[in-house]
Simulated assay, not measured.
Amino acid sequence: MAYVKRAEWDAHYADGGRFRELGDGERRLLAEHVPAPAGGLALDLGCGLGELARHLAGSGYRVDAVDWSEAALAEARSTGEAGVTYRRLDIERDDLSQLPHPSYDLITIRLGWAFVGDRTRVLNRLRERLRPGGALCVITPVADAVPDDRRDIALDEEEIGLLGAGWAFADRYDADGLAMFVLRGPSPTAPRYAGKGRPSPHALTGAGVVVTDRAGRVLLGWSVRGVWELPGGKNDADEDFAAAAVRELQEETSLTADPAGARVRAILMDSVHGIPRVTAAVRVTAFTGEPVVTEPRLVHRWEWHEVGDLPWLGGPLFTPSAHVLDVMWPGVLPGLPAVHRYPVADG
């Protein structure tokens, strides 16, 4: 919802603006479901001109009524109703420790919840302000009962579901065409995680593997596509970069290594044909075996190269491989294409 400025609320009330009066159905439901206990203390949020606050006071509550419009509060105070204390407070942006009391038997917000932007955060703070056995009562229009041009004052079913989440009891009542929610028993749920449906393919991700022999020479393959490249390739679903590097190394060269000994040194990002490309620069220092061409449809041969010879290979370097090599030996390869590089600290 759009954040309504305080000056706009002040102008609304100063110009004689009003909201829907408290109805008989609301009064009946309040008396039935949230009667005042002995010494009951209520907090009325967004009290406006104080109609609900005065009703609660008349029902036996001592009431703290807050709003952030001074114009509304000035008119509300003029009634001189006993049992109601008015205070200016923005429940979304001010510290709730400024409230007159630390906790309440009843917290109400009538016709105002749709105007709160950070509802989830505010709701969590209100839970903390309820006394044991207390209730939060939200009275609001609902989206399917208002015209489209009034949607900003109402809650839809998705928003209502979020309002009721995390409570042991979340009861809904019809109050003269408004929805009244009585929420009791704060019961925070464990974190849950979910996707947003099947995503559209967006990027290429993989690993380039640097392995060196005892003399410090680095292994490169001459590709059927006419470039020198490091061992490596795309990672499978649920496979981390180190595991992908070790798997690709074995599949392409027959060299075997322990994923626990593979180290991601940097994450590199560039693009190819308008597609983002993410490459992990992986260093493998311990392996067994000798390089063998196991996938001749991809690589003609594997060779060990002196690092100082990398600029003079007689054929082009595959760009992601060049970026990975530059991570390991900065400055050896001049004139590299642009890349975004994110070094990874060795844990």
Rank of each mutant, 00 (worst) to 15 (best):
L163G: 07
D148P: 07
V138C: 03
V138E: 03
A179E: 06
R184A: 06
A165F: 13
V138T: 01
D176G: 14
G166T: 08
T140D: 04
G164N: 10
A175V: 09
G185Y: 05
L126G: 02
R172V: 00
V138Y: 00
I139M: 00
L136C: 05
A154V: 01
I139K: 00
R131W: 09
G134M: 06
G134L: 06
A143G: 09
D148N: 12
I139V: 02
D148Q: 12
L126W: 07
A145Q: 13
I139G: 00
D156K: 00
D152L: 14
G166A: 12
A170Y: 03
I139N: 00
R151W: 12
G133T: 11
L123K: 09
A168E: 15
D171P: 08
A154R: 06
R151N: 08
R129N: 05
N124F: 13
C137H: 06
G177L: 12
E128R: 13
G177V: 04
G177F: 11
I153K: 06
M180R: 03
A143V: 04
D174F: 00
F169K: 13
D149M: 10
P141N: 04
D156M: 05
V146Q: 03
W167L: 08
G164K: 10
P141F: 05
E158N: 11
D152E: 15
A165D: 09
C137E: 04
N124I: 08
F181S: 00
S187V: 13
A179R: 01
A145I: 11
L178D: 00
A145P: 05
G177A: 15
W167P: 11
F181L: 10
G133C: 15
R131F: 09
W167D: 10
Y173G: 00
Y173P: 05
T140I: 07
L126T: 02
M180Q: 02
E157N: 08
P147D: 08
A143E: 01
E159L: 03
R131M: 14
L183A: 07
G166M: 13
A135K: 05
P186T: 11
G133M: 14
